[in-house]
C-alpha cells in the first residue's frame, strides 16, 4: 500500500474472518469445479487432459472430496461465527447492515430495473449489501448445503441405498451436475464479471481481499449505508 497523503478515508467492509473464508471458498470452489467438471464432461479433450495432469480419475475424485471438505468447513465456521455473534456478542443478524433478505431488496430490484431501462436517472440507494450481493451470498450458502447433500449420496452410495431407493443415487448425480453447471456459470462469469470487470469498478475491486473500501465507493455503491453511518462511528466488521 502506498502511503498517500491524499488517500481517501478507508472503511472496513470485510472482517479478517470474511476475507479468509472468501479466500478458502474461492480456492475450494475452483478446485471443485475443475475436478468435478472434468469427470462430468469426461468425453471432452480438455477434461481428459486435466485428469491426466492430476494422475487419473481416482486422484481427481480424491481431490474433489478434499476441496469439498475444506469448502464445507467454511460453511461450518461461518455458521459457528454467526452463532457466537448472535448469542455471545449479542449482535443483530437482520437489518440494513446484514445480508438477511428484506423487503427493501424487492424495491431495490424494481428500482434498479427502472434505472437499467432509463426510467430513473440513478440506481436505488443500496444498503451495505445490494440485492445482487445477497443473492451471490445466499446462492453459495444454500448451494454448498445442497451440493453437500447430493455429493454425500454420491460419495457413500452403499450407505444411502440402505434407506433410499437405488435410483436416488442417479437423481443425486443429475442434481449435483446441473447445480454445478449453474453455479460455475454464475460464479465464474457473473460474480467475477460484476464484482471486478464492470465499467464502474474495472479493473478490480480489491475490498474482499484487503477488507477495505473508500469513502467514494461507499457513497457511490452503498449510499444507504453511507448515509446511516456518515457522521457517526465507522462501520464495524460484521453484519
Amino acid at each position: 500500500m502506498p502511503s498517500n497523503a491524499q488517500r481517501s478515508e478507508e472503511f472496513i467492509r470485510f472482517s479478517p474472518l470474511d476475507r479468509l473464508l472468501h479466500m478458502v471458498v474461492m480456492i475450494g470452489f475452483t478446485g471443485l469445479a475443475v475436478t468435478g467438471l472434468s469427470i462430468g464432461l469426461s468425453s471432452t479433450a480438455p477434461a481428459r487432459l486435466l485428469i491426466a495432469l492430476v494422475g487419473g480419475a481416482e486422484h481427481a475424485a480424491w481431490l474433489h472430496r478434499f476441496f469439498a471438505v475444506i469448502t464445507y468447513l467454511c460453511v461450518v465456521v461461518h455458521g459457528l461465527w454467526f452463532l457466537y455473534y448472535r448469542l455471545v456478542l449479542g449482535g443483530r443478524l437482520t437489518g440494513p447492515h446484514s445480508v438477511a433478505p428484506s423487503l427493501k431488496d424487492l424495491r431495490d430490484f424494481r428500482e434498479n430495473l427502472d434505472y437499467f431501462l432509463g426510467r430513473r436517472s440513478a440506481p436505488p440507494e443500496f444498503d451495505r449489501f445490494t440485492y445482487m450481493e445477497k443473492i451471490d451470498y445466499w446462492a453459495i450458502f444454500i448451494g454448498m448445503n445442497t451440493m453437500g447433500i447430493t455429493g454425500l449420496v454420491l460419495w457413500f452410495p452403499e450407505f444411502f441405498t440402505g434407506f433410499l431407493p437405488g435410483f436416488f443415487v442417479n437423481i443425486a448425480l443429475v442434481l449435483h451436475f446441473f447445480e454445478a453447471v449453474l453455479a460455475v456459470l454464475v460464479k465464474f462469469f457473473l460474480h467475477i464479471g460484476l464484482a471486478h470487470f464492470r465499467p464502474a469498478v474495472y479493473p478490480a475491486d480489491t475490498s474482499i481481499f484487503t477488507g477495505r473500501t473508500t469513502r467514494e465507493k461507499m457513497m457511490e455503491e452503498h449510499p444507504g449505508q453511507w448515509r446511516s453511518i456518515s457522521g457517526s462511528e465507522k462501520p464495524t466488521g460484521k453484519p
Partner: peptide
C-alpha cells in the same frame, strides 16, 4: 428515496475518475 438519493450520487460520480 430516489429524489434524495440523486444529488448524492451525482457528487459520487464526479469523483469516479480519481
Amino acid at each position: 428515496e430516489s429524489t434524495t438519493g440523486q444529488p448524492r450520487l451525482r457528487s459520487g460520480g464526479s469523483s469516479r475518475h480519481r
